[in-house]
């Protein structure tokens, strides 16, 4: 396969990333359809993705709180092109500040018509409310859930219920 000017070669190196006790606790909760987050004992920051310490205060974060299953879009993008080994396009991803959390968490945002990028981008704008939808079969990974937009009428209904 060599053309004389280049030599083909591969990488193919596989890893076993340790999840750690903090990560395990978070992933175990996902199986139970709960999103839990560590809270800084000093400044009270509720952090997602979970970590074992607060970067700002530099103290361990040992307390856990459950965060809400709805939140607000803080940033998003729509990917219409194919990259090697990355998800099949088109897909939308968003950073969502879940109610009760202090930092936004990225995930897919599904069930949005992505055929017209401009129209889809309008639907997904910053400030829009989304809900967490858990997958039927959960394996204790970050893909155990995704986000879906809460349609405006629906959001109002749900908020008034509370």
């Amino acid at each position: 396969m060599n053309d004389g000017m280049t030599l083909r070669g591969g990488w193919n190196v596989e890893y076993n990333y340790a999840v750690g006790t903090t990560g395990k606790k978070f992933f175990d909760a996902l199986i139970e359809k709960k999103i839990i987050a560590p809270k800084c004992s000093k400044c009270g920051l509720v952090m997602l993705p979970p970590r074992s310490f607060c970067e700002r205060c530099f103290v361990p974060a040992e307390e856990w709180v459950e965060v809400g299953r709805e939140g607000t879009i803080q940033a998003f993008t729509i990917v219409p092109v194919k990259f090697e080994s990355l998800p099949e396009p088109p897909y939308a991803i968003a950073y969502v500040l879940l109610d009760g959390a202090d930092t936004a968490l990225v995930n897919f945002i599904r069930k949005v018509d992505l055929s017209d990028l401009g129209a889809a981008a309008k639907k997904l704008s910053i400030g829009k409310r989304v809900r967490v939808v858990f997958e039927k079969r959960r394996k204790g990974t970050i893909n155990d859930f995704h986000y879906e937009l809460i349609e405006t009428g629906q959001a109002r209904r749900q908020r008034s219920k509370k």
Binding site: Y17, A18, V19, G20, T21, T22, G23, R51, S52
Partner: peptide, 8 residues
């Protein structure tokens, strides 16, 4: 060290 993620 499986109980610790790299950053832990």
């Amino acid at each position: 060290k499986k109980d610790q993620k790299l950053d832990d």
